[in-house]
Amino acid sequence: MGNSFIPDNSASLPLRQPQRARTGSFGQFRQETMALARRLFIQLGRRPSAFVGSIIQSLLWLMLFSALFAQAPRGTFGIEGGYIQFLAAGIIVFAAFGGALNAGVPLIFDREFGFLNRLLVAPLVSRTSIIFASALFIVSTTLVQAAAIGAVSFLMGAQFAGGFEGALIVALVVTLLVFGIAALSLGLAFVLPGHIEMLAAIFVINLPMIFASTALAPMSFMPLWLQLVASANPLTYAIEPIRHLFLHSNWSWADPVLLAPWGSLSLTGCVLVLLVFDVVAIALVGGTLKRKLG
């Protein structure tokens, strides 16, 4: 390579201040967020095994769990169709939750390998762009995954009754849940000492959150204490609306979809709860970022 650092025409060293793009903060925020998200998509394209693996895993869950209760008497789960009809919503949320919970893993490796410093010394408009980029990525991949689960469960006999508009609401609900969980996972990735602790935390959180929700069994199957836990679990607020849309073609926003021990909640109510969950999550993580990073 020789001494090619120093070109003969050294005038080529660019030194004037390079021109900045869009002047507004919002434009800049968008620019940095999209750039960070683009990196995640490039990684996905070149290293797809984790994504492919998570799709395979959720399809396996779908098949195995539905087989587990395939012989249960009709009507056991409070619905007319088979268990698969009941389960599809649970598996969609299970997959979405798993993906979102892992959102912090790449970040913690960036931290350990020093790549995060590159982001932290840059004049980002807001470091929440790191969170938004990751959430954008996870939401996109999760929606693809949810569609795959929906398609396979259809082949297995689960009809989605909710129609096109219902499907959009499913997408909205998944997005809201994933956004909040991904933000919390990223917050965890900033706070925990390293990837071992992060993986341990994910391990501890993942399955218990599923079992303490209505993913696999209806609320009415549970003892009161678990009902209380499940109705405080954000997953339940995503599962119940999706399940309702799977089962009802003539749904409306005011339908009571979640039957908690303390009363019932409408579709609108569930979406609002998820929205509040997101706001709280981003506020919590934004605050952590400020405290941790100054």
Binding site: P14, P18, Q19, A21, A35, R38, P123, L124
Partner: peptide, 19 residues
């Protein structure tokens, strides 16, 4: 990516990266 984190315009980024 670095150029976007510093909010360079597309043209400036291209020029700067090439150089």
């Amino acid at each position: 990516l670095q150029a976007d984190l510093y909010h360079l315009s597309r043209a400036a980024a291209r020029e700067q990266i090439t150089q």
